[in-house]
């Protein structure tokens, strides 16, 4: 049977050529100046702080520490998409943020230089599995200490106490706190505690959820939502990144103590890190780390007291 045949299709080569063109490139060496994403723009002080690396470290009875010494490096799970907390530069691959400074600080107290840290990206859903599988030695990733998590992992700290707050556009004065959310579109991460709190306690707000706060902030700056809610530390990171466009309301309505997640049962390491946090608070390293990262948002919080549960 004769059939109607179509014409030849346009050569696929055109598409291929475009792709190659995009990949090859009018190249420039190195990384671009950070367009407001890196540590430089979010930090208060300009030079990266350094921490004295301990030389006489003797820890016995910690399987995690034994693993670290035999590997010659410590593997730390951190966030990669939270400016000011833990963010990976998509060009250089370097991590920056308060959690990153805290990681360097903890490594220094364990006698390890920053070169001996290997950062691994974690998302909220895989922090416990990473610790249980031994993929990472510790997790420093805006990790709230709570009883449910304590059943499967151990926590040192807290090294910071965050609270749920609201991020709004800089020119928006109508949202003064959680009670002013009626009829507003509020964005958070699906399944997160802040999202659940809005749904349960402020049902007159319209909740919009995504899988990452960076998407919520994107929706906020393009006027698709009116506020983003989560821990103030995270929000401050975004506000510091775009100070002209965004601001934090500054009325925290919960307490979220951030801890260092450790494999369950490693009490020796937990005590060591608790000592290290206390030492960092008293010798000023904690403040150096804070000022360099979250300090740009114009806050000066008190470091929290360690909770040796």
């Amino acid at each position: 049977m004769r059939t109607i045949r179509s014409r030849h299709r346009v050569s696929a080569l055109a598409g291929v050529a475009t792709a190659l063109l995009a990949l090859s490139a009018c190249g420039q060496e190195g990384s671009p100046e950070t367009a407001g994403g890196g540590t430089e723009s979010s930090g208060g002080s300009s030079a990266a702080p350094t921490y004295a690396v301990a030389s006489d470290v003797a820890i016995t009875g910690s399987p995690t520490y034994d693993k670290i010494t035999s590997a010659g490096k410590v593997v730390i799970g951190v966030k990669a998409d939270q400016p000011g907390i833990g963010q990976k530069d998509p060009g250089s691959g370097e991590y920056a943020g308060f959690d990153i400074e805290m990681a360097k600080l903890m490594a220094a107290k364990l006698g390890l230089t920053p070169d001996q840290i290997e950062f691994v990206e974690t998302v909220s859903a895989n922090r416990e599995p990473f610790l249980q599988q031994g993929t990472v030695d510790m997790v420093i990733a805006s990790y709230t200490i709570n009883d449910k998590r304590k059943e499967v992992v151990d926590f040192a700290g807290p090294y910071y106490v965050a609270g749920q707050d609201l991020l709004v556009r800089a020119d928006d004065d109508s949202i003064t706190g959680p009670d002013a959310l009626a009829g507003k579109k509020v964005c958070s991460v699906e399944g997160s505690t802040p999202a659940t709190r809005i749904r349960d306690e402020h049902p007159d707000a319209t909740l919009v959820t995504f899988d990452a706060y960076s998407k919520c902030v994107q929706q906020l700056t393009s006027n698709a939502v009116d506020a983003v809610t989560t821990d103030d530390a995270i929000l401050r990171g975004y506000a510091a990144q775009q100070p002209d466009a965004l601001k934090v309301v500054g009325e925290p309505f919960s307490e979220e103590p951030y801890g260092i997640g450790l494999p369950k049962g490693d009490t020796v390491l937990r005590n060591t890190l608790n000592d290290a946090i206390e030492a960092a608070v008293s010798d000023g390293d904690w403040k150096k780390a804070y000022d360099f990262t979250l300090g740009g948002s114009g806050t000066d919080p008190e470091p929290p007291a360690v909770d040796r549960y």
Partner: peptide, 18 residues
């Protein structure tokens, strides 16, 4: 979802329908 709002391409005020 992420880019059309940047381009101010919106259809409705109601966020669910949007």
């Amino acid at each position: 979802v992420l880019c059309l709002p940047i381009l101010q391409i919106t259809f409705t005020e109601d966020s669910g329908r949007q």
